[in-house]
């Protein structure tokens, strides 16, 4: 186990190193001069040159890589070109949005997926199973940003527009009148369609801003997870000790809850670990849909603004996050599965 762990760690370190070279290399070939971008159309050439010197952009390549990577490893992520503050500070600020968002989405998707998977597995082959898995199939196919747009329309814009419909009368007017308590509720709830008031505005306001993004982010995850839960459960249910338990006359649902669920959780957790990378991709796009000042939007913005040091450091952090989560998943898996440990 120790040898396995050591070699796994060495491999991880090598992956991180190569990844850092890739990230740095991409930054080098990114077209666009950050200094020119900051000073705009009317700036003179010497003002741009002065800023380049100030930003350290005229140093040789290896020197810049070395400065960056040694700083990075000691926790100094550099200083943002555009904001002029340490990147670490920006990351901390943005994590205060992205982390709760990701956790909410993760919790939400698990809360949806486990019962759905359990239900489907317990009704294996019956209508309930087919219906749930059909829904899950659709859920996997729904682009989260489209879902987000539709959610905003239904829950934020429509409640305010519905008054006009009521006034107009007709079929839509009648429908709007019937639904008016629902609209009134959402008018009162005032879910923001985007933007983030900041945690200083109070946790209620901040959480409200994260609800719709979390739902949009959670849906496809929940769909995938419920399918995994179901098939993991079915696989476990096919194993001998479950058959034995069933043969003893224990009811199927009890068997599922008492024996199968715990064992089926191992693959589910593994998938959750693998989903981490998807979750990051999801936050990038969802934070852009909702204009949330999170880590994903920071990177996206930084790319368009050529705030290279931010892109470099944050990408590296995310990549390291994925690598570490994968490592942890592997280790957990090895601990959980003795066969694998011995084989390794």
């Amino acid at each position: 186990m120790a040898v396995w762990l050591a070699s796994r760690l060495a491999m991880t370190a090598a992956t991180v190193l190569v990844a850092s070279l890739v990230v740095f290399g991409v930054m080098e070939v990114l077209p666009g001069d950050p200094a020119r971008l900051m000073l705009g159309m009317n700036a003179t050439q010497d003002a741009v040159a002065a800023l380049r010197t100030q930003m350290g952009l005229d140093l040789p390549l290896p020197v810049r890589y070395w400065t960056w990577i040694t700083g990075f490893l000691t926790g100094d992520l550099g200083r943002s070109y555009t904001y002029g503050v340490p990147v670490a500070e920006l990351v901390a600020e943005r994590l205060a949005v992205s982390l709760p968002l990701a956790l909410m989405a993760l919790a939400l998707s698990t809360l949806i997926a486990l019962p759905v998977g359990l239900f489907a597995a317990s009704r294996h082959g019956k209508t309930g199973d087919v219906a749930m898995m059909g829904l899950a199939q659709i859920g996997v196919a729904v682009p989260n940003f489209w879902f987000a747009i539709i959610l905003v329309w239904l829950l934020v814009l429509l409640p305010f527009q519905a008054q006009a419909w009521v006034a107009q009368g007709g079929l839509w007017g009648a429908l709007a009148t019937v639904l008016s308590p629902v609209f009134a509720f959402f008018q009162w709830l005032k879910l923001p369609a985007g933007g983030f008031p900041g945690w200083e505005a109070g946790s209620v306001a901040a959480l409200k801003a994260l609800i719709l993004p979390a739902i949009a982010l959670a849906l496809p995850q929940a769909a995938i997870l419920s399918r995994v839960t179901r098939s993991a459960l079915l696989e476990v249910l096919g194993e001998d000790y479950i058959r034995t338990a069933r043969a003893k006359g224990l009811p199927r649902n009890l068997v599922i809850r008492r024996h199968a669920l715990r064992n089926a959780l191992i693959p589910v957790i593994t998938i959750l670990g693998l989903q981490f990378s998807f979750l990051i991709a999801g936050t990038i796009i969802i934070e852009n849909v909702f204009y949330l000042p999170g880590l994903g939007r920071l990177v996206f913005q930084a790319i368009t603004q050529r705030d290279l040091i931010v892109v470099q450091s944050v990408t590296m952090l995310l990549v390291m996050g994925v690598i570490v989560v994968n490592l942890l998943t592997d280790v957990l898996y090895a601990i959980a599965d003795p066969r694998l440990r011995r084989a390794a």
Binding site: I149, V152, V156, L157, F160, Q187, K190, P192, A193, G194, G195, P197, V289, F290, Y291, P293
Partner: peptide
């Protein structure tokens, strides 16, 4: 100064009085 780049969010923020 509240930064709201998304036009849909801007519309909703004005309508709701945020």
């Amino acid at each position: 100064f509240r930064i709201i780049a998304d036009p849909a969010a801007a519309t909703a923020a004005m309508l709701s009085g945020d």
